[in-house]
């Protein structure tokens, strides 16, 4: 999709040699802290800003010719912007006429985002969540093959966030590729199959989320019926070559999920009764900070060198 794509604004390198590749038909998450370069990258892909260097293709077409692919792309960029004095329907009509799209799509997309009942009200009377949904409706107008949503859950309440998740899942189920940017890692973890992580303008990870999480540290937490048995459990772990430590009234073991059964077996054989045994998995947030902390360390080392 993009190769060595860079964008510099005077002294600031907003996007620094980004290489990204989003497989068709997946929900791809584009994550990073505020100011990491997500929106600029999206604007580059939509032909709204010109790259300083590098190339990119969207739906097989170069971003130097956005007119060749944008008819097949829907986008919600940053906060949704509409004409406040026009109704939601008229706002969509502006975009439909401009893009010479099928006018009948307006009712379809309004129904998809559950805004039909308020479609004829002026946008200035809408809540932020309704504007966000209207933004998604605008993105769906061309019946796109690719939908790019920049922070679509901003300003939504928990119910709205859940609706947005279901809209995005629905798009993926229809074979539409979705690229959704967010700094809310839990949201991304809940809805995305594929992940692109960006920090300081650089892509620091991309690939399936499942692969990322599997590669991260998993652990086992064990509780003994008698706290005094934790020391014995610690010794068992050491004998098995596993790192472990006592943390209050639990034992934390660095090991893969499969070793939990073995620990249970060994504890039983040693006469220890476990009152609890659970596997802890790294969250996307853990993975993100593990990767970006490592990246920061490397950057600091580069700067010192």
């Amino acid at each position: 999709m993009a190769s060595a794509l860079s964008k510099r604004y005077k002294e600031v390198l907003a996007v620094d040699g980004v290489d990204i590749d989003l497989p068709a038909g997946v929900v791809g998450g584009f994550v990073g802290p505020n100011g990491a370069g997500k929106t600029t990258t999206i604007q580059l892909l939509l032909g709204l800003v010109r790259p300083t260097s590098g190339v990119a293709k969207v739906l097989g077409e170069s971003i130097a010719h956005p007119e060749r692919y944008l008819r097949r792309v829907g986008a919600l960029i940053e906060s949704p912007s509409f004409y406040p004095a026009l109704s939601g329907r008229r706002n969509l009509e502006v975009l439909t006429r401009l893009g010479r799209l099928d006018k009948s799509r307006i009712d379809t997309v309004l129904a998809q985002v559950e805004l039909s009942a308020r479609a004829n009200d002026r946008v200035k009377t809408y809540s932020l969540g309704m504007k966000q949904r209207l933004g998604v409706a605008a993105a769906l107008l061309p019946d796109p093959e690719l939908v790019i949503l920049d922070e679509p859950t901003n300003g939504l309440d928990p119910a709205g966030i859940r609706e947005m998740r279901s809209v995005m899942r629905g798009l993926a189920d229809r074979g539409i590729t979705v690229l959704v940017s967010s700094h809310l890692l839990r949201e991304i973890e809940a809805i995305c199959d594929h992940l692109m992580m960006i920090d300081h303008g650089r892509v620091v990870f991309q690939g399936p989320i499942s692969g990322l999480l599997e590669a991260q540290h998993t652990g086992i937490v064990a509780r003994a019926e008698h706290a005094a048995d934790l020391a014995k459990l610690l010794a068992l772990c050491a004998a098995a070559g596993k790192q472990a430590r006592i943390d209050g009234d639990v034992l934390r073991v660095s090991a893969q999920e499969g070793w939990a059964a073995e620990l249970n077996r060994q504890a039983f054989a040693a006469g220890i009764t476990l009152s609890g045994l659970e596997v802890t998995r790294a969250s996307l947030e853990d993975a993100f900070f593990a990767i970006t902390d490592q990246d920061d360390t490397e950057r600091a080392a580069e700067a010192l060198a």
Binding site: P66, E67, A75, I77, E78, L95, G99
Partner: peptide
């Protein structure tokens, strides 16, 4: 108002 970006996505020419 920030509407230009929406418009240029629909009409990039």
């Amino acid at each position: 108002q920030g509407t230009l970006r929406n418009l240029l996505v629909r009409e990039p020419r």
